[in-house]
Amino acid sequence: MRKVIVVQASVKETKIEEFLKLGKIMVNKSLSEVGCLTYKLSKDLNKENDFFFYEKYENEEAVESHNSSEHFKEFINSVMPLLTKEPVIENFNA
């Protein structure tokens, strides 16, 4: 069964540019993963410092592979200090 993940990230106003650079790298690397169907980063229309990742995978194994990848771990370590709060993560079957 396909999996969809939506992540909301609230970024410190002074760190948006840095977050976007890291996010672009994350999107590009994630799209090259086996089993990753879609990986997008979008800005909230109503809040200047809120962003969303939209991710779609072939199956749970592809999600697990993504979450254990080096680029994912590096991204998390780099981006967490840029956020105002813990990201909100929602998982769906598609």
Rank of each mutant, 00 (worst) to 15 (best):
T38G: 00
N46V: 06
I5L: 10
D50A: 04
N28M: 00
K56Q: 12
S65P: 03
N93F: 00
F51D: 05
A9N: 11
L31A: 01
N93K: 05
Y39W: 04
N91A: 13
L20G: 12
I76A: 08
K56G: 05
V63Y: 10
E55Q: 08
E17L: 10
H66I: 15
G35P: 00
L31Y: 02
E18S: 10
T84F: 03
V34H: 03
E58P: 04
E33T: 02
S68K: 05
V7G: 02
I16F: 02
T38Q: 06
K12L: 13
S68Y: 04
K24M: 10
S42D: 03
E58G: 06
E64R: 15
S32A: 09
K43N: 05
V4Y: 05
A94M: 12
D44T: 02
K15V: 05
F53G: 09
E18I: 11
S69H: 13
V79D: 06
I16E: 03
K15E: 14
E86K: 12
K47E: 12
E17P: 00
T84W: 07
E60P: 04
K12R: 13
F53V: 11
V11H: 01
L83I: 08
S30K: 04
F75M: 08
L45C: 02
K73N: 14
F75D: 11
T14K: 09
I25S: 05
S42Q: 07
K29M: 07
E17Q: 07
E33S: 03
I16N: 00
T14H: 04
K24L: 11
V6K: 07
S32I: 03
N59F: 10
L37N: 05
K43V: 06
E64M: 15
Y54L: 14
K21M: 05
S68Q: 09
N77V: 12
E17V: 09
I16S: 03
A62N: 09
D50T: 09
N49G: 02
E90D: 11
E58L: 13
Y39N: 03
E90A: 04
K40S: 06
S42V: 13
E60R: 08
I76R: 12
Y54D: 06
A94Y: 08
G35A: 03
K56A: 11
F72T: 15
E13Y: 00
S30H: 03
V88C: 06
T84C: 08
I25V: 14
E64D: 15
A9E: 08
L20R: 10
V34F: 09
Y54G: 07
H66S: 12
K21P: 00
T84Y: 04
N46T: 11
G23P: 04
K73C: 09
N46M: 06
L20I: 13
G23E: 07
F52D: 01
T14I: 09
M26R: 01
L37F: 02
E60A: 13
L31V: 00
V63N: 10
I89Y: 04
K47G: 01
R2E: 11
L31G: 01
Y57V: 15
I5A: 06
